[in-house]
């Protein structure tokens, strides 16, 4: 109860507070709470580390684009002639040389299994533990930021980072794709033709879906972050969990469990490129992410609001 209910105490304050001086009633507006979110966003996105992560993510589409360009410079198409396999490389890569917009999907497919969630793991894992090891957490709490409010702010910031990271990949890929490859109407994976404008719309939808796919690991990372006082340990644990789950998701004997792994439906974003869009797995993915967010978000809350801050 204690801290969460602290808000209620405000109502009763006049009974205790003496007028004048520092007690001169500050009547806070509920909107002032957003100051913390704004500050958190500014702090996160001004960090050298955050910018480095985004730069790495922006570089992936550039590298993929250049690689495809070199590979197909002799006029051949990627994956063609190689026989039925085509399994090498991330999804959609065989279409990139025909339409630059596919680089967006390829880049997201290439970064979603590891680069993107790793970046999220770093930011989420550091969210509470980093403040704790720097000692700034105690000052935020005596400010008083309020534990639930701080946690919520942190989570909102990590989600914002998910979105930013995904959009950085998508926008970088869009630019590189338009620069190196032809653009125009495109063929969905169901073989139907859609206009470039609709393709852009779907690319945006895919970026949003990918960002939403990361909500689960963001909550997981935040929970891990409340368990330890070391930012590095939290980041390492989160990224370790990510890799473990990715590996377990490949083991056929675990197929009964796999639908509950947060990464299981990640590649369902490709279903947006079917005609008509195949929603089943997309919905499952979003539901699963919401479930992870609820379970680990509330676990993080339970942990953080009862934790002794000794650092």
């Amino acid at each position: 109860m204690s801290r969460a209910e602290a808000q209620d105490d405000r109502v009763r304050e006049p009974a205790v507070a003496t007028p004048g001086g520092p007690d001169a009633a500050r009547t806070p507006s509920p909107l002032w709470s957003l100051g913390l979110l704004r500050s958190e966003l500014l702090t996160t996105f001004r960090r050298w580390r955050t910018l480095a992560l985004l730069a790495v993510l922006a570089a992936v589409p550039i590298l993929v684009g250049i690689a495809v360009k070199i590979e197909t410079s002799d006029g051949s198409s990627l994956g063609g002639g190689g026989g039925g396999g085509g399994g090498a490389g991330p999804a959609f890569i065989s279409q990139v040389s025909n339409n630059g917009l596919f680089l967006v999907f390829t880049a997201l497919a290439a970064t979603l299994p590891f680069f993107l969630p790793m970046a999220i793991g770093v930011v989420a894992g550091d969210a509470i533990a980093g403040e704790s090891s720097a000692g700034t957490l105690r000052y935020l709490l005596v400010a008083p930021a309020g534990r639930s409010r701080l946690l919520l702010t942190k989570y909102a910031t990590v989600i914002a980072f998910c979105l930013a990271a995904t959009l950085v990949v998508a926008v970088s890929a869009l630019a590189v794709g338009a620069l190196l490859f032809p653009v125009g109407d495109l063929i969905t994976i169901s073989g139907t033709r859609i206009t470039y404008a609709e393709g852009l719309g779907r690319a945006l939808l895919i970026a949003l879906v990918v960002a939403a796919s990361l909500v689960g690991i963001a909550a997981l990372g935040l929970f891990v972050s409340t368990l330890t006082g070391s930012g590095i340990a939290a980041m390492a644990t989160t990224v370790g969990l990510l890799i473990t789950v990715q590996i377990l998701d490949q083991i056929p004997q675990l197929d009964a469990l796999q639908p509950y792994f947060f990464s299981h439906y990640w590649l369902s974003f490709a279903d947006v490129m079917r005609e008509p869009v195949y929603w089943d797995d997309l919905v499952k993915n979003l539901g699963l992410q919401a479930l992870y967010a609820a379970v680990f978000g509330s676990a993080a809350w339970a942990r953080f609001t009862t934790k002794d801050i000794t650092a």
Binding site: E5, A6, R138
Partner: peptide, 19 residues
């Protein structure tokens, strides 16, 4: 710690050195 929200804005603190 129950009344943190109302008490702490009126308290300034320096705990175990600056962070």
């Amino acid at each position: 710690p129950r009344a943190s929200r109302t008490v702490l804005p009126r308290v300034g603190a320096l705990i175990e050195g600056p962070a």
